[in-house]
Amino acid sequence: MFEIKNLTVAYQGELILEHVSLTCQKGKITGIIGPNGAGKSTLIKGALGLIKSQSGQTFINGKPLTKVRDQVAYVEQRSAVDLTFPINVLDLVLTGTYPKLGIFKSPGPLEKQAALDALAQVDLANFKDRQIGSLSGGQLQRVFVARAIVQDAAVVILDEPFVGIDMASEQKIMAILKQWSDAGKTMIVVNHDLNKVTQYFDDLVIINRGIIAQGPVSETYQMVNIQKAFSLDFGKLLFEQDMTGEGHV
């Protein structure tokens, strides 16, 4: 279980999130949605200590994050990755073994085999020697998932994993996430595509500079909550199209 308590984050003097608390349940895939600038990525980065927060604590199964940090695998936005960095696919996946190895140990044969097995799971075994900058968006995202596989963390957080990737990669990633949730891991996905909310997620967090709603998708993914987070017109259009069978915008 992943818990955020009383998180407050400001950026350049502007308050982004104030006293935010939420719980993501074990064995569930929790989606986080909201408009651009709502604080979705800020919520995750603040909770993980990747950016400075004014207040707040994060817990994994009741233990402070600072004591069990190796139990969280974080897949950042692809746009934040330096694709010119001279590292190949296999070595990038191997970095997922570092948290449990410690700073004075290097990956050995067991870790390398685990990395190769993870690449096979995401259908990229033949790409192990490729420099990461040569990969397509979908291939690179699958490499990040392979890194999370070898890390074998209790909590896996993905920030906008489906932006700019092909449908085959998206479906492969979702199949792995569902396997992880079935195995009892806590899955958290920051997502921009409202079309996939009911299909992909068990629970949902809707935010816009604060929590609008959180809980099971069937209870939270409602017109009133989308209107509060986005706009009255957008919420109406979204759910009117849904009722006519035309899908979401």
Rank of each mutant, 00 (worst) to 15 (best):
Leu110Ser: 10
Ala118Ile: 03
Phe201Arg: 11
Lys28Thr: 08
Arg209Pro: 03
Leu140Ser: 02
Gln12Tyr: 10
Met187Cys: 14
Ala10Asp: 02
Phe104Glu: 08
Leu22His: 11
Lys100Phe: 09
Phe104Asn: 06
Gly62Cys: 07
Ala114Phe: 06
Thr42Met: 06
Val197Tyr: 07
Lys112Tyr: 11
Pro99Ala: 04
Ile212Ala: 02
Thr244Asn: 05
Asp82Gln: 09
Leu15Asn: 13
Phe234Ile: 00
Leu7Ile: 03
Ala153Gly: 00
Met187Ile: 15
Gln54Gly: 12
Ser218Asp: 14
Ser136Thr: 12
Ala154Asp: 12
Gln113Ser: 13
Glu219Gly: 02
Leu90Arg: 08
Asn61Ser: 12
Asp166Phe: 03
Ile32His: 00
Asp182Glu: 14
Ala153Gln: 07
Ile16Met: 12
Gly138Ile: 08
Ala229Gly: 03
Val150Gly: 12
His19Gly: 12
Arg130Gln: 09
Ser55Ala: 15
Lys128Tyr: 12
Ala125Gly: 11
Asp159Asn: 02
Tyr200Asn: 11
Val217Leu: 06
Leu92Tyr: 02
Val145Trp: 03
Leu15Gly: 03
Val156Pro: 07
Val93His: 02
Val89Glu: 05
Glu18Tyr: 08
Tyr98Leu: 15
Ser169Asp: 06
Tyr221Trp: 15
Asn225Cys: 00
Leu43Phe: 10
Leu94Ser: 03
Ile149Glu: 08
Asp129Val: 00
Ala115Tyr: 07
Glu14Ile: 14
Gly49Trp: 01
Ile132Leu: 12
Thr66Arg: 14
Glu14Lys: 15
Gly137Gln: 04
Ile33Pro: 00
Leu124Asp: 05
Ala154Tyr: 03
Leu237Ala: 13
Lys5Val: 06
Leu237Trp: 01
His192Arg: 04
Lys26Asp: 06
Lys105Leu: 07
Gly13Ala: 09
Gly49Met: 09
Val189Met: 10
Pro86Trp: 09
Lys228Phe: 08
Gly37Thr: 12
Val249Lys: 13
Ala183Thr: 01
Ala168Trp: 04
Val81Arg: 01
Ala73Phe: 07
Gly46Thr: 02
Gly56Arg: 07
Ala146Arg: 03
Leu43Gln: 08
Leu22Ala: 10
Val75Ile: 15
Val81Gln: 05
Ile207Gly: 00
Gln171Ile: 13
Thr66Gly: 08
Val20Gln: 05
Lys52Cys: 01
Ser55Met: 03
Ile206Met: 04
Ala114Glu: 09
Met223Gln: 15
Gly31Trp: 05
Gly210Trp: 06
Ser53Asp: 04
Val197Asn: 01
Glu170Met: 14
Leu43Pro: 04
Asp159Leu: 09
Leu119Gly: 09
Gly138Glu: 10
Asp91Cys: 07
Gln139Ile: 14
Thr23His: 13
Ala154His: 08
